[in-house]
Design a binder for these strands. Sequence first.
DNA 1: TCTAAGTGCGTACAAACGTACGCACTTTCG
DNA 2: CGAAAGTGCGTACGTTTGTACGCACTTAGA
Lengths: 185, 185
Amino acid sequence: MGGPRRVANDPLRKQRILDATLAVIAEHGVHRTTHRRIADAAGVPLGSLTYHFESLDVILEQAFQTLSDAMSERYSTALTEAPDQLAACEAVTDLICAGDYLPSREMRILLEMYGYANHNPVVAEACRSWLLRSRESLAVHFPPRACRAIDALVEGWPMHQAWEREPLDRDLVLSTIVAIAERIR
Amino acid sequence: MGGPRRVANDPLRKQRILDATLAVIAEHGVHRTTHRRIADAAGVPLGSLTYHFESLDVILEQAFQTLSDAMSERYSTALTEAPDQLAACEAVTDLICAGDYLPSREMRILLEMYGYANHNPVVAEACRSWLLRSRESLAVHFPPRACRAIDALVEGWPMHQAWEREPLDRDLVLSTIVAIAERIR
DNA sequence: TCTAAGTGCGTACAAACGTACGCACTTTCG
DNA sequence: CGAAAGTGCGTACGTTTGTACGCACTTAGA
């Protein structure tokens, strides 16, 4: 029903597997992410994984790529829409405070990605590319040196917050961003 | 030779295993850290691991504890020795720039620790405790709110730098720290 | 309708895994 | 010296792992 299929139904299934992979990573960590757990989470047979992906490493690589693309996009959108520097400061503050609190799913996966990237060149390259894209987004509103400092904060603050029990102080974040924007040229 | 042993020679061997564990994690990542690899790296028999440690998770927990203790200590020492706030800013700058560049061994292991902590309560607690200790060290020289911002930078900048190809600009780091110290109260 | 090409998966297998446990060895105490 | 207590490890076992591969099924062209 729905007429004869004229193309392979790869894309949907592949994406479903990658989404499931991120879910497994978030729940169990890379060190306990296996073909079988992914297959269960995705509701697909085990053989489907080895058919669509060359190896487990490739699955992880593409799953992490999916995540970093989504984050880049959100990052870029938020900053592009800001009309002036102050609005950009607020946008960055929102990015930092989003997911606060508790350790958001995304932050958990990101930490796994960073760890894994140290042992997988493809994912390392994905990290680097994400770094550059986020810096470009910032460069629209801030001078180059301020970009570096702000970028470090965007990276560090939510990560730091992951171990914190109290919610993040939004005013403090905003003040810090503004201070950097004004003082660092 | 050396006279009769009156006590078990646990401590040395346990510590050697934990050091080897960190080495394996740095080289292969948690997801490929196994009893056998640790045993090889430490130069001890496989059975020795299961004798001294209840499980692989316990080995990882204690190894990460070793690391975070060492880092806390260094952190604390560097800040305690600073006579005034400006010196403290320089000390923090040194901490951030240390290991620059390339991805230092310690940063690699730290990333693994953060990832693993999301799936292991004991390690999560170690992260939290490390967070608090580092904040206490900062509190000697900076007001509470500035501590949070600086702490986030100490976390984020080296992490960020791990994917960067160019060396870190020390003056930029110092300027940023000073700006925060002066502006955030 | 028949056939060749191609898609997708169930299953099986060798390797690697965490861990249990028997046993050699050392030390202590009478 | 002899035996009990305790330390430390070699080895083996059942499980889980990543991956290969044969085979059912679908589609396209004649």
